[in-house]
Simulated assay, not measured.
Amino acid sequence: MLATIHGERTLTELDFVRLGKLPGQQLPPALTELLDAADVLPSREVPPDIVTMNSQVEVEDPATHQRQKITLCYPGDAQPGEGFVSVLSPVGIGLLGVRTGTLARWQMPNGAEGAARVVAVLFQPEANGEYTR
């Protein structure tokens, strides 16, 4: 089901390869679908307003207008209470590869739909010249 993938997604070649090879992990179907459908670009060509791995973003809840900072990370670095969200989580899958201004959507395990608007990409490794992070 493509319910968690809305709009265009852009991944770096490195993120695409690393996510496809997560050791000992069972990729969620939504992430597999995203990997199959995404545009893949060399790291040096990814626009700075795209959410890539290890990016810090500011998101806004469309209903409450509350904002928060989230860093999209690999599963081993996840600390949701500290704002480090795993790419294997519904929120992480919803954010990966979207552009600033996009309403990212995801489906929670209980079937409820979540959403947040990407207000800004505060830090993106590629925009900082970090092409192997």
Rank of each mutant, 00 (worst) to 15 (best):
residue 80 P to R: 10
residue 95 L to Q: 05
residue 89 S to F: 09
residue 69 K to T: 07
residue 80 P to L: 04
residue 51 V to D: 00
residue 82 E to H: 14
residue 87 V to L: 10
residue 61 D to S: 03
residue 97 G to K: 03
residue 95 L to C: 15
residue 52 T to Q: 08
residue 69 K to E: 08
residue 79 Q to G: 11
residue 65 H to L: 14
residue 67 R to L: 05
residue 52 T to K: 09
residue 63 A to L: 12
residue 63 A to K: 12
residue 59 V to S: 01
residue 54 N to I: 07
residue 78 A to K: 02
residue 93 I to H: 08
residue 98 V to I: 15
residue 89 S to L: 12
residue 89 S to W: 12
residue 80 P to M: 06
residue 78 A to D: 02
residue 93 I to P: 00
residue 54 N to Q: 07
residue 52 T to E: 11
residue 86 S to L: 12
residue 51 V to W: 00
residue 64 T to I: 07
residue 55 S to G: 08
residue 57 V to L: 08
residue 82 E to L: 15
residue 66 Q to D: 10
residue 57 V to I: 15
residue 66 Q to T: 07
residue 58 E to N: 06
residue 91 V to K: 03
residue 88 L to F: 13
residue 74 Y to E: 04
residue 86 S to E: 10
residue 88 L to Q: 13
residue 74 Y to I: 13
residue 74 Y to G: 03
residue 87 V to G: 01
residue 56 Q to V: 09
residue 61 D to P: 01
residue 67 R to E: 11
residue 69 K to Y: 01
residue 54 N to A: 07
residue 72 L to R: 00
residue 73 C to D: 09
residue 95 L to E: 08
residue 83 G to V: 13
residue 60 E to A: 07
residue 79 Q to D: 12
residue 71 T to I: 07
residue 98 V to P: 02
residue 58 E to I: 13
residue 66 Q to W: 02
residue 56 Q to R: 14
residue 89 S to D: 08
residue 81 G to S: 14
residue 81 G to Y: 10
residue 90 P to Q: 13
residue 91 V to Y: 04
residue 85 V to I: 15
residue 67 R to G: 04
residue 63 A to P: 00
residue 98 V to S: 15
residue 65 H to P: 02
residue 53 M to R: 05
residue 81 G to T: 11
residue 72 L to C: 04
residue 59 V to G: 01
residue 93 I to C: 12
residue 66 Q to S: 05
residue 63 A to E: 10
residue 77 D to P: 01
residue 64 T to L: 08
residue 56 Q to S: 10
residue 95 L to K: 05
residue 84 F to C: 06
residue 72 L to P: 01
residue 81 G to Q: 14
residue 81 G to W: 10
residue 76 G to W: 09
residue 59 V to T: 11
residue 83 G to C: 12
residue 55 S to Q: 05
residue 59 V to R: 01
residue 92 G to T: 15
residue 87 V to F: 04
residue 78 A to H: 03
residue 51 V to C: 03
residue 95 L to D: 02
residue 94 G to R: 02
residue 61 D to E: 09
residue 91 V to P: 02
residue 89 S to H: 10
residue 72 L to Y: 01
residue 63 A to M: 11
residue 96 L to W: 08
residue 78 A to G: 03
residue 60 E to W: 08
residue 80 P to F: 05
residue 72 L to S: 00
residue 96 L to M: 15
residue 67 R to S: 09
residue 85 V to D: 01
residue 66 Q to P: 00
residue 80 P to E: 11
residue 77 D to R: 08
residue 51 V to P: 00
residue 83 G to I: 13
residue 64 T to F: 06
residue 83 G to T: 14
residue 64 T to A: 09
residue 98 V to Q: 11
residue 68 Q to L: 06
residue 76 G to M: 08
residue 82 E to V: 11
residue 55 S to I: 07
residue 92 G to S: 15
residue 92 G to E: 05
residue 88 L to D: 14
residue 76 G to Y: 07
residue 75 P to H: 05
residue 78 A to M: 09
residue 90 P to R: 09
residue 85 V to Q: 02
residue 90 P to F: 12
residue 97 G to L: 06
residue 97 G to E: 04
